[in-house]
């Protein structure tokens, strides 16, 4: 483990992320500028129309889409927050032992009930049976 070296303190080790960010952004920027210099640009109005398989595009592209996306986004937030709570629990799991296991079990059980509820309500289906009947 390379922890003895002087750069391993908390902030300096995170500075590598900053360095990477700088280099990646630099890389992208240099390439985009290079591309801008060498690429041709002969625009015409036809060329700039959005692609709809050769048809003239009708209306704006910012249309209504399936409401199910929002339901799944909500579900995602619930379970992602669960995962965030469980990560520190998992890290100290071995140190605390059976107590941690029991508490985790209670937490996961509550979420499993939530999942079962959502499942029963039919919200895990892409096309809900209720919607289909209407």
């Amino acid at each position: 483990m390379p922890s003895a070296a002087p750069s391993a303190s908390y902030l300096t080790s995170h500075s590598a992320i900053l360095a990477f960010l700088l280099v990646v952004v630099g890389f992208v920027a240099v390439n985009l500028v290079l591309w801008k210099i060498i690429r041709p640009s002969r625009f015409s109005e036809e060329k700039l129309t959005t692609y709809e398989c050769g048809e003239n595009p009708t209306g704006s592209a910012w249309i209504q889409f399936n409401i199910r996306f929002y339901v799944f986004a909500l579900l995602f937030i619930i379970f992602d927050v669960e995962a965030v709570f469980l990560l520190p629990w998992a890290v100290v799991f071995r140190e605390i032992g059976p107590l941690a296991f029991l508490e985790g079990l209670v937490f996961i059980a509550i979420l499993a009930i939530a999942l079962a509820y959502v499942w029963r309500k039919g919200d895990l289906e892409w096309v809900r049976t209720e919607d289909r009947q209407v």
């Binding site: 750069s7 990477f20 280099v23």
Partner: peptide
């Protein structure tokens, strides 16, 4: 030194 080392790593990695 820290930033230099980080950037050197980053150049290799990227």
């Amino acid at each position: 030194r820290v930033l230099g080392a980080g950037i050197a790593c980053a150049v290799i990695g990227v």
